[in-house]
Nucleic acid binder design. Sequence first.
DNA 1: TCAATCCATAACCAGATGGATATGGATTGC
DNA 2: GCAATCCATATCCATCTGGTTATGGATTGA
Lengths: 108, 108
Amino acid sequence: MAPDTPDTLFKSLADPTRRAIFERLCREGEKTVGALTAGAGVSQPVVSKHLGLLKQAGLVQDRHQGRQTHYSALPGALAPLVDWTREMSAFWEGRFDDLENLLKRMDQ
Amino acid sequence: MAPDTPDTLFKSLADPTRRAIFERLCREGEKTVGALTAGAGVSQPVVSKHLGLLKQAGLVQDRHQGRQTHYSALPGALAPLVDWTREMSAFWEGRFDDLENLLKRMDQ
DNA sequence: TCAATCCATAACCAGATGGATATGGATTGC
DNA sequence: GCAATCCATATCCATCTGGTTATGGATTGA
């Protein structure tokens, strides 16, 4: 799946375990697979698999150092998501052709 | 699943068919199930099921008129998504404790 | 009233997916 | 060199999920 598309991003972040891993990397910075496994609530192979998917999606990068692999977040990859939500909201803001929208705006 | 949480929103928008329906509602405004089915590429029951999930997630609302049901988008429900991405980016911006981040910033 | 239309629900199926365990390669420490 | 550690891959399994067809209730129109 092509990285950095809304589809890939939504799919990658839809799983709670996977999203939690990404969140930890965003909050706490670079971490090894072992460190991520501690507290993930799932086995190490599962963590590795999720990290592989996050990497494919362009959301994380890895750095090999000896027998450890350090992963870190690439929050810039979230840009297409931001664009998408902005686009959807923009369509909403730009449309005033039904009564409900009109009433909502008059309500403000 | 509780509506309007990042988890529910990501899951709801992860499916391409479902997201396409939501996008159409955002772009083109209120539509009946029949109108949405035309061009969705899937059968009418599938469209109904997706609309049911989108409604549970708080992303759409429905309005019954005779034998038709009109659905419309509620893009305000995307707010938790926007907040979440902002939060992740904020963690990123606030951290300058490793060499790679430093180099990236010096690069700009 | 009766046929047709619109939509939701039910039942079912195939494939995707998240999880576990088993294993093995690479690296480190003794 | 050898045992131990770290991680990725392989295999397998149960469940979830997105799709189909079948059906039926409600409403409309003739």
